[in-house]
Amino acid sequence: MNDDTLTLGCAHCGAINRIPAARRAHGPRCGKCKRPLFEGAPITLTTANFSAVVERSQMPVVVDFWASWCGPCKMMAPVFAQAAARMEPDLRFAKLDTEAEPALAGRFGIRSIPTLMVFREGRELARQAGALPQAQLEQWLAAYRL
Rank of each mutant, 00 (worst) to 15 (best):
N2H: 11
N2T: 09
D3V: 00
T5G: 05
T5C: 01
L6T: 02
G9H: 10
C10S: 12
A11G: 15
G14L: 11
G14Q: 09
A15E: 13
A15M: 03
I16Y: 01
I19N: 12
P20F: 13
P20Y: 14
A21R: 15
A22G: 00
R24E: 08
H26Q: 15
G27S: 08
G27K: 06
P28F: 03
G31R: 12
C33F: 12
C33V: 01
R35Q: 10
P36K: 02
F38Q: 10
A41F: 01
T44L: 13
N49A: 13
N49H: 02
F50N: 12
V54Y: 10
E55P: 02
S57V: 08
Q58H: 08
P60L: 03
P60E: 08
V61D: 08
V61F: 10
V61L: 06
V62A: 14
V62D: 08
V63T: 09
V63Q: 10
W66I: 06
W66C: 07
W66S: 13
W69Q: 11
G71P: 06
K74S: 10
K74T: 10
K74M: 15
M75C: 02
M76K: 07
P78G: 15
P78W: 04
F80Y: 11
F80C: 04
F80K: 05
F80S: 01
A83H: 07
A85Y: 07
A85K: 11
R86W: 02
M87C: 05
E88C: 04
P89N: 09
L91K: 03
F93C: 08
F93I: 04
A94E: 15
K95A: 07
L96P: 07
D97N: 15
D97I: 05
D97V: 02
T98F: 09
E99F: 04
E99M: 09
A100K: 14
E101W: 01
P102M: 15
A103I: 12
L104V: 02
A105I: 07
F108C: 12
F108W: 14
F108A: 05
G109F: 01
I110A: 15
I113N: 11
I113R: 11
P114V: 05
T115K: 13
M117D: 15
F119S: 10
F119Y: 00
F119T: 05
E121Q: 14
R123D: 06
L125V: 05
A126Y: 06
A126P: 00
R127V: 12
Q128L: 08
G130K: 02
A131P: 03
A131Y: 07
A131R: 12
L132P: 08
L137Q: 06
L137W: 04
E138A: 00
W140A: 02
W140M: 01
L146D: 14
